[in-house]
Amino acid sequence: MSGAAIVTGAAGGLGGRIGERLAAAGHDLILVDLDPAVGEVAAAQGARAVVADLTSPDGVDAVLAAAGDDVAVLVNNAGITRDARAPKLTEERFAAVIDINLTAAIRLTLALERRYREGASVVNLSSRASLGNFGQANYSASKAGLVGFGRALAQRWAPRVRINAVAPSLVDTPMTQAMPPDVLAKLVARIPAGRIGTPDDVAGIVAFLCSADAAYVTGQVIYACGGRSLAP
């Protein structure tokens, strides 16, 4: 396996781990993030780093310049949260989440259209919250939007490029580590698997979807959420 593998939101724990798995599969790894710390993550993995704001045309152009013409994998992992119950949620905070989590992913995916190799794989990081989640009208809409976008593109670009999604629940990252311990414990208690997800739990599914083993899988969502999508 070769070709470029692009991972966005790669300065964080999850994106970095996804990058490690793809590098191990032999890809030429390109890690993208707004956070300059992505440079250190990339150096540790022997990867190239692109510091870019993917909501801007310049940011997308920076990724295109690094990508070359043989893109095997794109993982749209960049995302933010701005949680609030709907009555307290402003349009600005709603739009900010949609812009980064969904619209920026759409822009980058489409901008790379001519660069994908035959059999390339796009994986969108959706979320269990795409099915609805208290205080996350913006996040839920953004992650559900990735599902629809992927379904449509999977049909449009088949058989040349496959597009799938992974939908985690809570993952042990700096974002969840910042939550009040009692709140986190209550949320974890609702996960049938009995524990919070690890970056490896998610990265493994991403690596599978990007591999030849998933050559017949497109337009699908894998809920890597410890059963949270089913539990009361």
Binding site: A86, L102, F149, R156
Partner: peptide, 23 residues
């Protein structure tokens, strides 16, 4: 996802939002 990808993104995004408002 049987039509335009951007329309599909909005449609499923709206459905996710509807479900969150329900919750």
């Amino acid at each position: 996802g049987q039509g335009d990808p951007l329309d599909a993104a909005v449609a499923t995004g709206l459905l996710g939002m509807v479900r969150t408002f329900g919750i």
